Measured scan of single mutants.
Amino acid sequence: TTLHFDLDGKKLQYTGVSEEIARLVEELKRRGVDLKEIVRILEELLK
């Protein structure tokens, strides 16, 4: 799965993300978590 974000005018793309992580990101968005925080979490998970 590939995730795309537009953060402060920067286009971020994460490829090869598992379905689980993609679902987690969608859930965080639904809960109103700040996009910067979501990206920070995502980068930690993908290390």
Rank of each mutant, 00 (worst) to 15 (best):
V17W: 01
D8H: 04
V33E: 12
R40A: 10
K29L: 12
T2Q: 05
R23I: 12
F5M: 04
L28H: 06
L45G: 05
G16K: 05
G16D: 08
K10Y: 10
R31A: 08
A22V: 14
E26D: 12
I41T: 12
L46Y: 05
L24S: 14
T1I: 14
L35I: 14
R31S: 07
D34V: 10
L24I: 14
V25R: 00
I38P: 00
L24C: 07
T15N: 10
V17Y: 01
L45A: 15
T15R: 07
S18N: 10
S18P: 14
K47A: 11
K11V: 09
E43S: 06
L28G: 02
T1A: 08
L12E: 03
G9N: 04
K11G: 06
K10N: 10
D6W: 13
G16H: 14
L7W: 05
L46N: 03
Q13P: 01
Q13K: 14
D6Y: 13
T1K: 13
L28D: 01
K10S: 08
L24W: 12
K11M: 10
K36S: 12
I38N: 00
I38V: 13
V17E: 01
I41D: 03
L12Y: 14
L12C: 05
V33C: 05
I21F: 07
E37A: 10
A22W: 11
E43N: 09
L12D: 01
E27G: 10
I38R: 03
R40D: 08
T15Q: 11
G16C: 05
I41M: 08
G9L: 02
L7Q: 03
D34G: 07
L12S: 04
Y14A: 00
L24F: 11
I21V: 13
L24D: 10
V25Q: 01
L24V: 11
K36Q: 12
Q13G: 03
K29A: 14
S18F: 02
V39G: 01
R30Y: 12
L46C: 04
E37D: 11
K11Q: 15
L24Y: 15
R23T: 14
G9T: 02
R31W: 06
R30F: 14
S18V: 05
E19I: 14
E37Q: 12
R40L: 08
R31C: 05
E26H: 15
K29H: 12
K11H: 15
V39N: 02
V39P: 00
E26L: 15
I38S: 01
E19D: 13
G16R: 06
T2Y: 04
T1M: 15
K36L: 11
I38G: 00
H4Q: 11
L42A: 03
E27Q: 12
T1E: 11
K29I: 12
V33A: 06
V17I: 09
K47N: 12
G9A: 02
K47P: 08
A22P: 01
L3V: 07
L35C: 04
E27V: 14
D34M: 12
L3E: 01
V17A: 03
I21L: 07
L35H: 10
E20S: 11
G32P: 05
T1V: 15
D6V: 09
R30W: 12
I21N: 11
K36R: 15
H4C: 06
I41N: 06
L3D: 01
E26R: 13
V25M: 06
D6N: 07
L45Y: 08
L45C: 07
I41K: 06
F5T: 01
A22C: 08
D34A: 13
R23L: 14
E37K: 08
K29T: 13
D8P: 02
T2H: 06
R30S: 11
K29M: 14
K36A: 11
D6M: 07
F5K: 00
T2K: 05
K11D: 09
D34W: 09
E26P: 02
E19G: 09
G9E: 04
L12R: 04
L3F: 03
V25P: 00
K11F: 09
V33L: 10
A22I: 09
Q13R: 08
H4W: 12
V39A: 03
E20P: 13
E19K: 08
I21W: 07
R30C: 04
G32H: 12
E37W: 07
I41Y: 08
K29Y: 15
T2I: 09
K36P: 08
K47E: 08
T15K: 08
V39H: 04
A22M: 09
Y14T: 00
K36C: 05
K47M: 13
Y14P: 00
H4D: 13
R23D: 10
K10F: 09
T2G: 04
E43Y: 05
K29V: 15
R31T: 08
I38E: 00
V39Q: 03
K11S: 12
K10G: 06
D34Q: 11
V25C: 03
K36N: 12
L46K: 03
E44G: 11
D6P: 00
F5E: 01
L45E: 11
F5C: 01
L7P: 00
E27C: 13
V39W: 03
I41P: 00
E26F: 15
V39Y: 03
T15L: 07
Y14N: 00
E37P: 02
E43W: 04
D8M: 04
T1P: 06
T2E: 07
L42R: 00
E44K: 09
T15F: 12
L42G: 00
R40W: 14
K10L: 13
E20Y: 09
L7E: 04
R40C: 04
G9F: 02
V33R: 07
V33T: 13
R30H: 10
R23Y: 11
T2N: 09
S18Y: 02
L7Y: 07
F5V: 04
K36Y: 15
G9W: 02
L28M: 14
K10H: 11
G16Y: 08
Q13I: 14
L42S: 01
R30L: 14
V33G: 05
D34K: 08
Y14F: 12
R31K: 12
L46E: 02
L28S: 03
L28N: 03
R31M: 08
L3N: 01
G9K: 02
D34C: 10
R30N: 09
E27L: 15
L12M: 08
E37R: 09
L45S: 10
K36W: 15
S18T: 10
L35E: 10
E26W: 15
E19Q: 13
V25H: 02
V39S: 02
V33N: 06
K29E: 08
E43D: 13
K10V: 13
T2W: 03
G32R: 05
L24A: 14
R40H: 09
L28K: 04
K47W: 15
R40M: 12
T1S: 09
K11L: 05
D34I: 12
G16F: 07
L46W: 05
Q13H: 14
L35F: 06
V33F: 11
A22H: 07
D8F: 04
K47I: 10
K29F: 15
V33S: 05
K47V: 12
D6T: 08
R40K: 12
Y14I: 04
K29G: 09
S18A: 06
H4M: 10
A22Q: 07
E43K: 03
I21T: 11
A22L: 11
K29C: 06
G16E: 06
E27N: 11
E20G: 07
D34L: 11
V33Y: 13
L24K: 15
L46P: 02
F5N: 01
I21K: 03
E43P: 02
A22S: 09
T1W: 10
L12I: 12
Q13T: 15
V25G: 01
D8V: 02
R31G: 09
Q13L: 14
L45D: 04
G16A: 07
G32L: 08
L7H: 04
V17R: 00
I38F: 01
R30P: 01
D8A: 04
E27I: 10
K10R: 10
K10T: 14
L45K: 13
E44Y: 15
L35K: 06
K36I: 11
R40Q: 11
K29R: 14
L46G: 03
V25D: 00
S18K: 07
L42T: 04
L12F: 10
T15V: 13
L42W: 00
L3I: 12
D8I: 01
L7D: 04
I21A: 09
R23Q: 14
L46D: 02
H4L: 12
E26V: 14
R40G: 10
R40N: 09
E43L: 06
L42M: 06
L45V: 08
L12V: 15
L45F: 06
F5Q: 01
I38K: 00
A22K: 05
R40Y: 13
V17F: 02
R40V: 09
L3Y: 03
Y14S: 00
F5A: 01
V33Q: 08
K10M: 14
L42I: 06
D34F: 11
D8T: 01
T1L: 15
T15G: 06
L46M: 07
D6F: 10
R23V: 11
H4P: 02
E43A: 05
E43F: 04
L7A: 03
S18M: 04
E44Q: 11
I38Y: 01
R31F: 05
V33P: 02
V25S: 03
Y14L: 03
E26Q: 15
E37S: 09
G16T: 03
E26Y: 15
L24E: 15
E20V: 06
L12Q: 05
V17G: 01
K47R: 13
L12P: 00
L24P: 02
I41H: 07
E26S: 12
K47L: 12
K36G: 08
G32I: 04
V39R: 03
D8S: 03
D6E: 13
K47D: 07
R31L: 08
L3P: 01
L35T: 15
E20N: 05
V25E: 00
E37M: 10
V17T: 02
L46R: 03
D6H: 15
V17H: 01
T15A: 09
I41E: 07
K11Y: 10
K11P: 09
L12G: 01
T1H: 15
K47Q: 12
K11N: 08
L42N: 00
E37F: 07
